[in-house]
Amino acid sequence: MTLTRKNGLLYLAILAGLIVLPSFISTKYYIHLSVLALIWVIVAQGQNLIQGFTGYVSIAQAGFMGIGAYGTALLGLNFGLPVWLTILSAPLITALFALVAGYPSLRVKGHYFAIVTLAFNMVIFIVLLNLTDLTNGEAGLMGIPKPGAGKDGAINFADRTTYYYFVLIAATGVTALTALIVNSRLGRVLVAIRQNETLVGAAGLAAWKYKLFAFVVSAMFAGFAGALYAHYQSFINPEIFTIAQSMDAVLAVILGGSGTITGPIIGAFAIVFLPEYLRFADSFRLVIYGLILILATIFMPRGIVGLASDALGLLKKRRAR
């Protein structure tokens, strides 16, 4: 997959759409959801790097978000460090944890890898819950400061629309970085690992180094997203960093389109907005949610992006005739 002109135009169109989006939304709640969706774009791009491109399904992204969120919050609350510094430290702190978790767990493949990462997510959750001296346990951390100088500053980050653009810049940067990685020589190796890891070894490449790279970078994205979340909500507790949220990251990639750049963007918006639109179904909400996901994996294994490109291809064929 190279960066063709057509792809470039598509990316620009999506970016333009996201730039003008807030002016079409009058309900504040939808701006709020859009901010969350953009934060999830960052998580999903990371998930896609390890799951979609490298072929290792990790179920630990929410745990890494938690590390990033608590990292930035605790650095700010305990040491009074400026917000921009703690946000930038969050992915680095997460990277350390990912290195330690990834080195042993990347020795196993397939379902085993998924289970090891899932266990790691549970460990993070349990530690956040029980290390009460540091994390304040179930009650969580409150009063996490916003970036900038508050209402009097040049930019008022307390304003939702402002924060939306702040996160949009971050999500664009992360997406561009992902595109750079997957189109690079290194990215070719990741895609090769997904297709045939044995042959990668026989081609003289130490697959574990590349897998560890993808795993650590994906965790850094999640840690960064967690930090953006913490400063947006000003409140975090362990509840939001459980396996259920990690599964959301997995689903965002599957639903949007695994191994594509646009897929995780669409998938992230889907997993944030879909449950909202299913509210009318009340207690059946989760059942319908589950059903949609099962149907999606059966009938559109390449996600929404795959379905769309198939439809476009069909349309072109018709027109050609």
Binding site: R185, G187, A192, A203
Partner: peptide, 20 residues
């Protein structure tokens, strides 16, 4: 091309991040 990786002269982080 992937099989040629061990024989490639340009190594290092930056050349790994250039176009595949």
């Amino acid at each position: 091309l992937l099989g040629a990786e061990p024989a490639r002269t340009r190594r290092g982080v930056w050349s790994m991040l250039r176009s595949g």
